[in-house]
Lab assay of single mutants.
Amino acid sequence: SLSVDNKKFWATVESSEHSFEVPIYAETLDEALELAEWQYVPAGFEVTRVRPCVAP
């Protein structure tokens, strides 16, 4: 099958004044980091952490 098993990760994104967490959907932690950097670094943010979303 061609289905992709995307998992939810939380990326911590920082600017000079703010820090916030955004959801990233990817297959692996490395891919989540790449996606977060691709989305947020060009906008002037720094991705400081990516972690798996742990269900309660």
Results as ranks from 00 to 15, higher is better:
G44R: 01
A43W: 14
E17D: 12
S1F: 10
P52G: 07
L33K: 13
A36F: 04
T12H: 06
Q39S: 07
F9K: 00
Y25G: 01
W38S: 14
E46H: 09
V54E: 07
Y40S: 04
W38L: 13
S1T: 10
C53F: 06
E14W: 12
D30W: 14
E21K: 05
A36M: 04
V47H: 05
V50R: 00
P52W: 10
E21C: 08
V47Q: 01
G44N: 03
E17H: 14
E27L: 11
N6S: 13
L2C: 15
A55I: 12
V41Q: 09
D30H: 12
E46C: 11
C53E: 13
K8G: 05
L33C: 07
P23T: 09
P52F: 09
K7H: 09
F20G: 01
P52T: 06
L33N: 04
E37A: 11
A11H: 01
A36W: 03
Y40R: 07
W10Q: 02
L2N: 12
P23F: 12
A43R: 11
E17G: 11
V4Q: 09
E34F: 14
V4P: 09
I24R: 00
S15I: 05
P23A: 11
E21S: 06
T28N: 10
V13D: 00
G44Q: 03
T48D: 04
A32E: 01
E37Q: 14
F20K: 04
Q39M: 15
A11V: 15
T12N: 03
I24H: 00
V54N: 13
L29C: 15
S1G: 09
S1M: 10
E27G: 14
P56R: 03
N6D: 08
P52Q: 09
Y40E: 04
F9C: 14
K7Y: 08
A43L: 15
Y25A: 03
T48W: 03
E34W: 13
E14M: 13
E21T: 08
T48A: 04
F20Q: 03
Y25V: 04
E27S: 14
D30F: 09
L2V: 12
E37G: 05
P23V: 15
G44S: 00
E34S: 13
L35R: 11
D30C: 12
T48F: 02
A26T: 01
E27M: 14
E34I: 14
C53I: 04
